[in-house]
Nucleic acid binder design. Structure first.
Length: 736
DNA sequence: TGATCTGCGGTTTTT
DNA sequence: CCGCAGATCA
């Protein structure tokens, strides 16, 4: 009896096919991680491949960690030499070693999205780009998609000749990239793109990695983007031993540049590809699986496959529509509480999923009220918090003197009386003399424009220099503690004596703990190493096995996980599928991506799946009325039990009184097929989707109607004037 | 010149 | 409901 006997036929075939390109189309819950780990074991133990020559790439550290653990259990000897890594950390490791070949220093800093935005702000200021017209975020989005397709600033510029708007983006891209380089910093997309660049310009480096990684495996292949594809392609060029695992139905990262074509066209890109489909599901009940299959069936352009299972039929899927999002949350929390009370499961058996992070709040409140432990994944990243970013900026300043962004962030934190004007003068001087911001600070005395302010800069420079000189003798945690003491960061917070400050202090303590944990776990802890780890963690990575709490997260974060009980909440048109997807240039395509997301969500459930929605919910402080999601209608009613909302009579009466006006105006029907279709009210003779005429803006289409106090706030997409929000009583819109 | 207050606009998903 | 820019205060 060998470890491979427990695999099914297809799984075994995948494990034993070790040479040449292999595409494994693995449906949800079909045991793909099992296949990958067994495949690694087989390579080592039966094919006698040196573990050192195996590379497995995943998307999150959590997935990498799990794979590593399972390989360790499976393989007796040498498992720790197998390189299991995320795309990003793989690239960082390669770049730390060789990036000096392409014009960066090996102690580069990694910029997160906040850093990117600050840098872009600076770029726009410098280029006199009006950020009202070109928003930092949209500029960055354009640059990100360029990088994901490996388009460098020069190529970008050539591609947009004649297009004024895009020319501005090209300028911004060029300057943004120039500043990144002079700060010796890379953004997330650069990590991949620069690695590809390195391989393309330095054949000797590429060849080293060809020999190093003779067997490649890539998980979640459907979520790779153009740059990642190129990276894999380059690495596999010599030995062609590339095994990718993915499911086109679970491709949900198009917005991040993921190219579904990578999986659909894999066979074209790699000759003699062996394709194996894993269609047996080991996770969910038949009901859940059938429902998910029926939903995803509505998508076109997918690789045909149907998941089946030998698991029991299970109980029907439960669908509830509630009056408000509060009742929805109450139900979910109540249901979890009763499950645990009745001994039907643990808190950790339950996951609450939703489309947007903002939806977590109601659930949090109800969970806190009910005294149920929970873990919120996502939202504001721990490392994105102000106090954490401040302290990290000190560490970054010490680690990479060229990182202007970090220096500028903390030069006046705590307050040293150095304001915007002084900063501007120092920056001017630095620009003029082509030096870094920090180097200009060191020369503060010689900058005439600074006059008296120079004296304020000096202690800061001295402080940083002192820390830097101590660096060889201090551990990272000692360094951090010294920064906290010397700057008085915590002292000031204690003095504030507010709840908020208390929270920040706790976060700082948490940061210190994280440093200590890092020092204990890393082989040779360094400041750069810590900062790198910090830059590349995802929030999902913090989910620990074995802890007993309810998990709250977005559908995106839920990918790859499974839970006995899943509550898929906010199943409403405009929320899921999202408003954005419904109103995009190509709604068909974007709704298909939302549907895949729905499929991912449903297939997370092992035993019990709940689908819930609310007639009305508070979105950004406004009441919104959404019809039931189309995805609900795609679930055959045979598989689903629709329970009416069990609000008691008194509550119902109160609500009727409170929302009488709204209700008459917006009798949103539960199974109304069109999105946002609103019954014509007494006041308005037009509804969402109607074309209207405005006295000044001309013709347009009504995109949304929101009840706002006594009036209705109407959003209209005008043909010439663009999107406008207006009050119905003032706008005098006429239906055309 | 720097610190603080107020009004406005903007909002999916994340390594 | 939150962050940011501009105006005002010290």
């Amino acid at each position: 009896m060998s470890i491979y006997d427990t695999l099914n036929e297809q799984q075994r075939e995948a494990v034993f096919h070790t040479e040449g390109p292999l595409l494994i189309l693995a449906g949800a819950g079909s045991g793909k991680t099992r296949v990958l780990t067994h495949r690694i074991a087989y390579l080592i133990e039966e094919q006698h491949v040196n573990p050192w020559n195996i590379l497995a790439i995943t998307f999150t550290n959590k997935a990498a960690g799990e794979m590593r653990e399972r390989v360790d259990q499976l393989v007796g000897f040498g498992a720790d030499s197998v390189w299991v890594s995320t795309f990003h950390s793989l690239c960082v490791r390669i770049l730390r070693r060789y990036i000096d070949r392409i014009g960066y220093g090996t102690s580069f800093t990694i910029y997160d999205s906040d850093d990117q935005k600050s840098l872009m702000k600076e770029v726009c200021r410098k280029l006199n780009i009006d950020t009202k017209i070109y928003k930092e975020r949209s500029l960055l989005a354009a640059i990100s998609s360029a990088k994901n397709e490996l388009v460098n600033p020069m190529e970008f510029e050539l591609n947009v000749l004649g297009d004024f708007g895009k020319k501005k983006i090209a300028e911004a891209y060029k300057e943004y990239q120039r500043q990144l380089q002079s700060n010796n910093a890379l953004d997330f997309d650069d990590l991949i793109m620069k690695t590809v660049e390195l391989f393309q310009t330095c054949p000797d480096v590429l060849d080293y990695y060809h020999e190093r990684f003779r067997y490649l495996m890539v998980d979640e292949y459907q979520d790779t983007n153009g740059a990642q594809f190129q990276l894999i392609h380059l690495l596999a060029r010599k030995y062609h031993n590339l095994c990718v695992v993915g499911d086109d139905d679970q491709s949900i990262y198009k917005f991040r540049g993921a190219n579904i074509e990578n999986i659909l066209n894999f066979e074209k890109a790699f000759a003699d590809t062996k394709v194996i489909k894993l269609e047996q599901n080991y996770r969910s009940t038949q009901n859940i699986l059938n429902a998910a299959n029926e939903v995803i069936r509505n998508n076109t352009g997918r690789k045909a496959k149907t998941l089946w299972t030998e698991n029991e039929e299970g109980t029907p899927i439960l669908f509830h529509q509630f009056q408000t999002s509060f009742e929805e949350a109450e139900f979910v929390v109540g249901d979890i509480a009763s499950k645990v009370r009745e001994g039907e499961g643990e808190y950790s058996d339950c996951a609450v999923l939703y489309r947007t992070n903002a939806q977590s709040r109601v659930f949090e409140e109800k969970l806190v009220f009910a005294g149920i432990p929970y873990k919120l994944v996502g939202g504001v990243n721990f490392y994105a918090r102000k106090e954490i970013k401040d302290l990290l900026a000190y560490l970054k300043t010490i680690d990479n003197a060229l990182d202007d962004l970090a220096v500028r962030r903390i030069i006046n934190v705590p307050k040293r009386g150095i304001g915007a004007t002084t900063l501007g003068r120092i920056q001017d001087y630095a620009d003029e003399h082509e030096m870094s911001f920090y180097d200009a600070l060191k020369l503060a005395d010689e900058i005439p424009a600074l006059s008296r302010s120079a004296s304020k800069v000096k202690p800061f420079v001295l402080f940083i220099q002192t820390l830097r000189s101590k660096l060889p003798f201090l551990s990272v945690s000692e360094l951090l503690k010294e920064i906290i003491d010397e700057t008085g960061y915590v002292r000031d917070l204690v003095a504030e004596d507010t709840e908020e400050a208390q929270g920040r202090i706790e976060n700082i303590e948490e940061l210190v703990n994280k440093v200590v944990t890092y020092e204990e776990s890393a082989e040779s802890p360094t400041l750069s190493g810590f900062l790198e780890e910090v830059a590349l963690v995802a929030d999902i990575d913090s989910l620990e096995e074995g802890s007993n709490y309810v998990v709250l997260m977005t559908l995106h974060s839920a990918k790859g996980l499974e839970f006995p009980n899943v509550y898929l909440t906010g199943m409403e048109e405009g929320l899921f599928p999202s408003y954005m997807s419904l109103h995009s240039d190509d709604p068909e395509k974007e709704i298909e991506e939302e549907r895949r997301l729905c499929y991912v969500g449903m297939t997370r459930a092992m035993k019990k799946l709940y689908l819930t929605c609310a007639r009305q919910r508070l979105v950004r402080g406004e009441v919104q009325y959404n019809p039931v999601s189309r995805f609900i209608k795609e679930v055959p009613s045979l598989l689903m039990e629709s329970a009416g909302h069990k609000t008691d009579k008194l509550k119902e009466a109160q609500k009727n009184a409170a929302y009488a006006a709204a209700k008459t105006a917006f009798k949103s029907k539960a199974f109304e097929p069109r999105q946002f279709t609103v019954k014509k009210s007494e006041g308005l003779d037009y509804g969402v989707g109607d074309t209207v005429q405005h006295i000044k803006f001309g013709r347009g289409v009504v995109a949304a109607i929101v009840e706002g106090g006594k009036d209705y706030e109407v959003t209209v997409d005008f043909e010439s004037a663009g999107r406008k929000k207006m009050f119905a009583s003032f706008a005098k819109l006429k239906k055309v």
